[in-house]
């Protein structure tokens, strides 16, 4: 399994805002373990909240990384807020919107909203509904962990991220 929790970048205003989508699918193995059948209760496949947060961290992390052309190692340092209004089920599409609240040499603070489209047939299934809010803080680790040395290679923005970045067709940069 690749550690990719967004499928596509759909909008990017450099230094301001990045929007990505994620389709949930029963082809994802983890949904069969979260939650498996138990006693009389049938399986309840739900996207774990931690992975929804990871999706926002990847969305916001790319937004922050792009500011410095992916030269900084942008590490999720803190989850300041994570609120979800309802469960995410297989077949839903999530839309993550991350905005930069502040950024400087040490790190960045982002705000994020998540919307979901249930894709249910019938009325409203194709409409985006608010799902949650996630605010994060990122550290540029080379600037903060004084005395500690990290590999020169940027292990945060590896090939997988650059593939998503390039495939979006929205940007010029590494992988584009």
């Amino acid at each position: 399994m690749r550690w990719m929790w967004i499928d596509r970048i759909v909008e990017h205003e450099p230094g301001e805002r990045l929007v990505a989508i994620k389709n949930t699918s029963l082809a994802e193995e983890h949904l069969h373990d979260h939650l498996p059948p138990s006693g009389d209760r049938p399986a309840m496949p739900l996207m774990p909240g931690s992975l929804i947060i990871e999706g926002m961290a990847q969305t916001a992390g790319i937004l922050v990384g792009a500011v410095n052309d992916f030269q900084e190692k942008v590490i999720l340092a803190k989850i300041a807020k994570a609120e979800f209004d309802y469960d995410v089920l297989p077949g839903m599409t999530l839309r993550y919107t991350a905005t930069i609240d502040r950024i400087d040499t040490a790190g960045a603070v982002t705000k994020g909203t998540i919307e979901a489209r249930t894709n249910d047939p019938g009325e409203g299934g194709d409409a985006w509904q608010p799902l949650g809010r996630i605010n994060l803080m990122f550290s540029h680790i080379d600037q903060n962990m004084a005395g500690l040395e990290f590999p020169e290679e940027n292990f945060v923005f590896g090939d997988n991220f650059m593939a998503i970045w390039g495939a979006s067709g929205l940007v010029k940069g590494p992988g584009a």
Binding site: A77, K78, A80, R102, A106, G107, V109, M137, S139, N144
Partner: peptide
């Protein structure tokens, strides 16, 4: 923790 100081600095500035 150490990372909290960065958070605190950001929030004080704001």
């Amino acid at each position: 923790e150490s990372i909290d100081f960065l958070d605190i600095v950001f929030r004080l500035e704001k």
